[in-house]
Every structure is written in structure tokens, then in C-alpha cells.
Amino acid sequence: MKKLQWDFYSKDTLSVAQNLLGKILVHEINGKRLSGRIVETEAYRGITDKAAHSYGGRRTNRTEIMYGTPGFSYVYMIYGMYYCFNIVTEKEDIPEAVLIRALEPLESLDKISLNRYNKSFSSLNKAQIKNLANGPGKLCNALAIGKSENKVDLCNGSLYVAKDDINDFNIKSAKRIGISYAQEAANYPWRFYIENNIYVSAK
């Protein structure tokens, strides 16, 4: 699999969020390659986006990675228990990122299932299969993405996004999820997903 490089990520965040759809998120760990097709993303546009951690130029130890080189991971915890995986975009000092919201599991399905449910993939019912990675916390759990995967170079490492030839799908846009606090920004149609894919978290 050919890894996407920094020039892919150093573009307009809304474009990157859409162009990531259909690509493959891969985590090579303990001799296994855990992967899933990206089917849903959300764009966060930094300083002017009230839903972004860097809104208003906020700069902390946590958000500093967003001001750096595109193509690095930004992983943070929500509700004290779930990790969210983001990819830094744009140019340096423009603190924007794309949240990966949902995956269609592809490789090492047993390991992904063990990570999520502590049982083999063959023993899952249809609902459990659909819910393997259809949310940001779920996909991090499934692909073993956590604190150690924060601030890593996605262009040169064991956690990366790979190209794929699939492009025969329609892209839909909708409001982002879970950001009701963000006033008018809560209504921006900056969530993108592959139409009719069962692994999308919400339509």
C-alpha cells in the first residue's frame, strides 16, 4: 500500500476531508495490519471555527500539533474514555484538521473484533459488525489507536493512510455531530460520508 504524503494533506481542509473518503487507514502493530476504508470524515477549520479546538487561535500543549506540519496525527480523549483520531491539514501555523469518523473494516477482522468486543469476528451478529468502527471512538478502539499514536508522522510510520483505486461512490455532506455548543458553526455542513455505506455513523 502506498502511503499518502504531506502534499495530500497540505491543501484546503474541506477538500482533504472529502478526498480522504475511500482511502485506507492502516495501523501496523504486533505483526498485524489492521485497516479500514474511510467512509466518514469531519472538517475542523481552526481559528474561525467555533467547533475547533484551535478556535480563536487557542494554543495549548494539546493543540500545538495542529499548528505544525500537515500529515501528522492529532489524537485526543473525550468523556475521559474514548480517543478520537484526526489528521492535521493545511500549511504550518494554520491549525486545521480532519476527524476520521467511521471506517469499513478490511484487514485483520478477528483482531479488530477482539479489540472491540473481545470475541472473534465470526461470532459477531450483523449489528455488531456494523458497529465495529462506525464512530470515532469505536474506530480508535478497533485499530488500537490511543495516546501513543498522538503527534505521529502519518507519512513515515506504522500508522498511515494509503491510496486506493475505489472512487465509484457519491459523497454526501451534513452537519457535524456532537458540537451543539458551537453556535452557528454547529450547522456548517462539514461532515462528509460515502452515500449508502452501512458503516457511516449517521446519515
Rank of each mutant, 00 (worst) to 15 (best):
K2I: 08
K2S: 12
K2M: 09
K3F: 04
L4K: 07
L4H: 08
W6I: 11
D7M: 01
Y9A: 03
S10P: 09
T13H: 08
S15W: 08
A17S: 15
L20H: 02
G22C: 04
V26G: 01
G31T: 09
G31A: 08
R33M: 14
R33Q: 09
L34R: 03
L34W: 05
R37C: 10
I38E: 12
V39Y: 01
E40M: 06
A43Q: 10
Y44R: 07
I47S: 11
T48M: 11
T48R: 14
T48I: 13
D49P: 09
K50I: 06
A51Q: 02
A52K: 03
S54Y: 06
Y55G: 04
Y55Q: 04
G56P: 04
R58H: 11
R59A: 04
T60V: 10
R62N: 01
T63K: 09
E64T: 07
E64H: 07
I65T: 14
I65H: 02
M66C: 07
G68M: 05
G68D: 11
G68E: 13
P70C: 09
P70S: 14
G71L: 04
Y74L: 01
V75W: 04
V75P: 07
Y76C: 03
Y76T: 03
I78W: 10
G80M: 06
G80Y: 02
M81F: 02
V88F: 01
T89P: 03
E92H: 07
I94E: 11
E96M: 11
E96G: 00
R101N: 03
R101V: 08
A102I: 10
L103M: 10
L103S: 11
L103K: 13
L103A: 12
E104P: 04
P105N: 08
P105I: 04
E107C: 01
E107L: 08
S108D: 07
S108G: 15
L109C: 13
D110E: 08
I112A: 09
S113N: 10
N115Q: 07
R116P: 04
R116L: 08
R116H: 06
Y117P: 12
N118H: 02
S120C: 00
S122G: 00
S122W: 05
L124H: 02
I129V: 15
K130Q: 14
K130G: 02
G137S: 13
G137F: 07
G137E: 13
C140D: 05
C140N: 11
A144Y: 08
I145T: 11
I145E: 03
G146Y: 10
K147G: 00
N150D: 15
V152N: 02
D153S: 12
C155P: 00
C155L: 00
S158I: 03
L159G: 04
V161M: 08
A162C: 15
A162F: 06
D165H: 00
I166S: 14
F169M: 11
N170P: 00
K172T: 06
K172Q: 09
A174T: 14
R176S: 13
R176Q: 14
G178I: 05
I179G: 01
I179W: 01
Y181W: 06
N187W: 05
Y188D: 06
W190P: 09
W190H: 13
R191M: 12
I194F: 04
I194M: 09
S201C: 07
A202V: 11
K203L: 12
K203N: 15
